[in-house]
Design a protein around this nucleic acid. Structure first.
Length: 402
DNA sequence: TCTGGGGTCCTAGGACCC
DNA sequence: TCTGGGGTCCTAGGACCC
């Protein structure tokens, strides 16, 4: 039986959600109807466009460009900072609403998901009519609009939801691929980014149709195994399933762009310590241990590089992760001014089975781990703003344990 | 006062083992 | 004096997504 998949995508998610936040606070107008964008702070060098209103888009403002450029194109534009906690709340509300209708929902990102409609079609009938119903329900109860793509595969549903916006429903069934998808530029195909599209254009492949009819063996020379997938996608072929149970995180990372380029460990290490606290806290919240620690660098030319190490024993300890990060930093750092620094934890496991090592004090390790949980509790109780005080407390407690 | 942050997946080369 | 190949683990980097 043919599958029917919905792809549900929030229109201008960050901007819509901030608009609602502002209206709740008593704002007299809806920033969705004005020249507006969500963007980071320019002074701390985070000034890029994360989302823009339709009016700003008409001026040529694009996601990812600097606020400086956006202002140049659209002098009337106003910028608003992102509020990720609020965004997550809206995201949760959306997925909760949808899960009333089907358990088969795959959360693809904060603002989009797939729904396996084929499995519930008997209950709700015609896909298009049902899409209209939930689209309206989302607007009425949550206050923002979504696009819905309907197709026989996840890939085509995703492509369909992107056709025209906002508050639209599009179908891209198998028999419609030729008419609706083939004429599109290759850059619009999901999975084809800047690098690949540039190469394809050089090979005289400009539309999805061109790629769909290209010779896989010829493309293999340039793209290796990706060539096969690319041609399949261009033909709308995608057998991947809607996976409803959330898969386990593979890694946890936290990076920060420094307020200015830095070259001294006296400045960088305290930041690395704060990052160690962040990532290890996330890890402990998930009751996980990490086997691989990586330090992420970005230099003033925007070139990133990493240096990583596999640990003998997985850890969730702030102090251990910090110590390893410092070592990795000194080993990996190319001694150039640093624009961004971060830590990534990989190969997460549920528990530790300590590898016997003569050089490690197991008791101390266990005590340190307990200590981390105590500090987490203190922070939870007294809030983020007393992190400084909590750090002091941490030192005092540590001495007590000694 | 130009260019975020958090993810996933894939590839390639070297080390190491059988 | 010459000199296999296959598998797995580890590290680094690149491409892509939102």
């Amino acid at each position: 039986m043919e599958r029917i998949i919905f792809h549900i995508d929030v229109n201008n998610a960050f901007l819509s959600w901030t608009a609602l936040d502002l209206l709740n606070q008593g704002y007299k107008y809806d920033i969705r109807d004005s020249y507006a964008a969500i963007g980071g702070d320019e002074k701390s060098r985070r000034g890029i466009v994360l989302a823009k209103s339709p009016k700003a888009k008409k001026c040529g403002v694009v996601t990812g460009e600097t606020l400086y450029m956006a202002r140049k194109k659209c002098p009337a534009i106003r910028f608003y900072p992102p509020n990720y906690k609020w965004y997550q709340q809206n995201s949760n509300a959306l997925f909760q609403l949808l899960s009333k209708y089907s358990p088969d929902i795959e959360v693809a990102s904060i603002d989009e998901c797939y729904l396996d409609y084929g499995k519930v079609q008997k209950l709700y009938g015609d896909p298009y009519e049902f899409a209209k119903k939930i689209q309206k329900e989302i607007l009425d109860t949550l206050g923002f609009t979504v696009n819905i793509g309907i197709a026989n595969s996840k890939l085509c549903a995703k492509m369909a939801s992107d056709f025209s916006k906002p508050y639209k429903i599009h179908t891209l069934y198998k028999h419609e691929i030729k008419e609706k998808m083939f004429p599109l530029p290759i850059d619009d195909l999901f999975g084809i980014g800047k690098q690949t599209s540039a190469k394809l254009h050089q090979l005289n492949i400009h539309t999805i149709s061109d790629l769909a009819h290209a010779d896989t063996a010829y493309l293999y020379k340039y793209f290796k195994n990706s060539a096969v997938k690319m041609v399949e996608w261009a033909n709308g072929i995608d057998d991947s399933e809607v996976i409803s149970e959330q898969t386990e995180r593979k890694g946890i990372s936290n990076t920060t762009t420094l307020p200015r380029d830095m070259s001294h460990t006296d400045e960088i290490f305290p930041i690395l310590h704060a990052i160690s606290e962040n990532v290890s806290l996330s890890l402990r919240k998930k009751h996980k241990y990490a086997s691989v620690v990586a330090v992420i660098f970005k230099d003033k030319f925007f070139k990133s590089y990493t240096h990583q190490r596999k640990l003998d024993n997985p850890t969730c300890s702030t102090s251990e992760i910090f110590e390893v990060s410092k070592e990795l930093f000194l080993e990996g750092w190319k001694r150039d001014p640093i624009r961004l620094i971060g830590i990534r934890l990989d190969q997460l496991t549920d528990h530790v089975s300590y590898q016997a090592s003569l050089f490690e004090d197991f008791e101390e390790k266990k005590e340190n781990e307990k200590l981390d949980f105590v500090v987490d509790e203190i922070k939870k109780k007294f809030g983020e703003q007393v992190i400084g005080k909590a750090s002091l407390a941490e030192n005092k407690i540590k001495r007590k344990f000694d």
